[in-house]
Amino acid sequence: MANPVQADRPAATPDRPGRRPRPGFGRRDSIVGWLLIAPALVYFVAFLLYPAVAALYYSFTDWNLRSSPSWVGLANYTDLLFDDVKYPHFWKSVQVSLMYTVVAVPLTLVAALGQALLVNAIRKGSNLFRLLLFLPVVTAEAAVGAIWRWLYDPQYGLINVILGWFGVPPQNWLNNPDLVIPALAFIAAWQCGISMIIYLAGLKGIPLSLREAAIIDGAGPVQRFRKIIMPMLRPTTFYLLVTGVIAALQVFGLVYVIFSAANKSVTGGPEQAGLTYVLHLYLFAFRYDAMGAACAMSFILLVFIMIITALQFKFVKQEAA
């Protein structure tokens, strides 16, 4: 039989020869089943599938949201990739998002794992610390933006004060093009609460016997971390890596808030250093009247994310060892 799930089921006696028995559901049950998933299905079709298909269609049109879209074939795609008069910052935005991903994702993973190890190690009050470390995730983005603008302030900012103790001269974090990406990535790492919780669950899932056996064999903490914890957490790390890369490539809200709040300008910070791919897309969709091109950008990103994800599945070790 083709279906491996059905293959190992005990064969029910068929009522009529030649007809495969339906496992589980009768016809009436199937109506009930459809009714039960109907809300989710309607939601999926109306709010996810239809808009996605519509966006794909619009990506082949010139459309300003007001007049009817006109078909332009692949022009949006080719112009985005090759016409630097029409889209002078397209490749810059690709570069910004890639840079951000390369810096922010590892930083987030390291921060999350570090926090998880600490929370896992303490005996008293781990709930409190878990809560405190999780708070940045549930804080409204506008508030996060305001707080970090203040922390990064070139004159009064706490970050500069702390760096000053180590003799580092004050930096103009959000206005120096070279420092924008690290500054943003640091905020992302500070917001690593969800990854921390997932790592914590991973840590709890490592059998104690492994640790005991390692201790008996004379392995120190560093060796235990390298030879037991890291390999055992590999599925967790892989999951966080894949989802983290996808999220980082789509970063938008924070950049928008950080640069629009004080500068009254949404163009992505000094010298476009914070013009992430999705911010660029947003500007074309809602500020420059080019919804068609924006839809094309979203599909380019979709394909890119699919490729990156497939590469990760192929080349990154994901099984626990």
Binding site: A46, F47, L48, Y50, P51, A52, A54, A55, Q250, F252, V278, A285, A294, C295, S298, F299, L301, L302, I305
Partner: peptide, 14 residues
């Protein structure tokens, strides 16, 4: 990403 676009389109419909 298609999610974002979907969201935008959904908002429009709404």
């Amino acid at each position: 990403m298609s999610r974002k676009v979907a969201g935008a389109a959904a908002a429009i419909a709404l």
